[in-house]
């Protein structure tokens, strides 16, 4: 387990206090978690990566491209692996009946997408930049803008659910969820970078974020180009 992972109990994030296991996790000998990741049991449509085209009109907000690569811990790309994302709208509201933040819903934005990585491990989403939103963890608590990511990778132990943040967000140092990661280098790994090369003139800004999963991608055949 990487020392960069957050602990289960992080009292500043109030939700951990009654949900973190009190007993130590039980270690299994080598091999017991060496089996393949689940195959995602649904087909993924070409348009599922574009969160701005799921309704009759376009969502309100700053259109962005979010892209990067999914790699194993040896730096090898994970091909054709499922990436799932979900997020708040530009006003910081989720399409969820439990989100009662008094900000408008957007009839043209659901806030969920999926894609498969390509042969070099690249993923690409088109969306709008999510807004910050208040939560009741402590007085005047606001989550920094973020996009939730869920990945399977190649092995059972590769599974990762995490959040991607945006560079320069002043809420990050005050956010106990991000700050639960013990070291700055680990926290930095969740912050995307502005990517002027991928930005499309007159159309959308781009952010780049690579994801490294535990475990090894299948070794390519030696004669494969």
């Amino acid at each position: 387990m990487s020392e960069r992972e957050p602990p289960y109990l992080y009292p500043d994030y109030v939700g951990t206090r009654l949900r973190a296991p009190a007993q130590p996790l039980v270690n299994l000998p080598d091999g017991f978690h060496d089996f393949p990741a689940p195959l995602f049991p649904r087909t993924i449509a070409q348009v599922d990566h574009d969160l701005t085209r799921q309704h009759a009109g376009e969502p309100i907000g700053e259109r962005i491209i979010v892209t990067g690569r999914v790699l194993d811990s040896d730096g090898r790309p994970l091909r054709k692996t499922v990436v799932e994302v979900w997020q708040a709208n530009a006003a910081g509201r989720y399409l969820d009946q439990d989100d009662q933040h008094p900000a408008p819903l957007d009839p043209n934005f659901t806030g969920a997408g999926r894609c498969l990585t390509d042969n070099d491990g690249h993923y690409r989403f088109i969306t709008i930049k999510p807004g910050a939103y208040p939560w009741k963890n402590h007085r005047n608590a606001w989550r920094p803008a973020h996009i939730h990511f869920s990945l399977f990778g190649s092995e059972f132990r590769s599974r990762l659910v995490t959040q991607m943040y945006f560079p320069g967000d002043p809420l990050m140092p005050r956010d106990p969820i991000l700050q639960s990661i013990p070291d700055q280098a680990g926290r930095d790994r969740l912050v995307s970078r502005f990517d002027p090369e991928t930005t499309v003139p007159e159309w959308a800004l781009a952010y780049r974020w690579d994801i490294v999963l535990r475990g090894r991608a299948a070794t390519p055949f030696e004669n494969e180009p």
């Binding site: 939730h148 991000l178 490294v212």
Partner: peptide, 19 residues
């Protein structure tokens, strides 16, 4: 384990729209 792994974060309360 050689690569600097991407750390985990909570699924949060509003995953219902996505997962």
């Amino acid at each position: 384990m050689s690569g600097p792994l991407t750390p985990s974060q909570t699924v949060g309360p509003f995953f219902g729209v996505g997962l």
